[in-house]
Design a protein around this nucleic acid. Structure first.
Length: 191
DNA sequence: CGCCAGATTGACT
DNA sequence: GTCAATCTGGCGG
């Protein structure tokens, strides 16, 4: 299956967040494909977004302003969270991958997470990085190249009526517009 | 180096 | 529903 091209990410983060639904997140781990369809995302903007790391300065802010289509991985509450840098030219932004529906390599994911329930495998941003063995080493790596061990592929078509929208989860200061996107009937959403 | 906030999770009332 | 363990990045000293 083909990876998404880099210019897929050269658009507003809310657009990219919505369009990422149904795409396949792929991690090649010890020669095995671990993958899942993206079912939940959140968009983050630059300075104007009170919840965005772009406000805090430093490396994360630089990364959010930099090349699109690369991973932005950072730690919160002892978890690693996976984002994709996405914004229009000259702006800043990123999309947080919040949940995926397990597809390939499910047994390996269960081992990595030490759980059996498939519904509890990748239904949260910290859970899915754990299940796919994603950590800080992937920070700033491109997700749009065929040979990379972490990448995003074409996936399946999602109809507009399947998509739900809400405010972001656990964000203390949110934007006045809803920036969380999810597939309404999915059994693999975060709580 | 110490302090602090936080885009979480899992355990528990 | 509540609560805190535990760790990273940014920043001040």
């Amino acid at each position: 299956m083909r990876v998404l091209p880099q210019d897929f990410y050269l658009r507003r983060p809310d657009i990219v967040a919505r369009e990422l639904l149904g795409k396949l997140l792929v991690r090649v781990y010890k020669g095995i494909r671990l993958s899942g369809f993206i079912v939940e995302t959140e968009a983050y903007f630059g300075e104007e977004d009170p919840a965005s790391r772009a406000r805090k300065g430093g490396d994360l802010a630089m990364t959010m302003r930099g090349e699109v289509g690369i991973a932005l991985v950072y730690g919160v509450h002892r978890q690693w969270l996976l984002n994709v840098v996405a914004h229009e030219p000259g702006n800043a932004g990123a999309v947080l991958i919040r949940a995926i529906e397990p597809f390939e390599g499910i047994n390996m994911m269960k081992k990595l997470r030490a759980v059996n329930d498939i519904r509890n495998l990748t239904n949260g941003p910290g859970k899915l990085t754990r299940a796919l063995a994603i950590d800080k080493r992937f920070h700033k790596r491109p997700l749009f190249l065929e040979y990379e061990s972490l990448r995003i592929e074409q996936g399946r078509i999602v109809k507009p009526e399947e998509i739900g929208v809400s405010f972001r989860v656990n964000v203390t200061k949110d934007m006045p517009i809803p920036l969380r996107f999810y597939i309404k009937n999915s059994k693999f959403l975060s709580r």
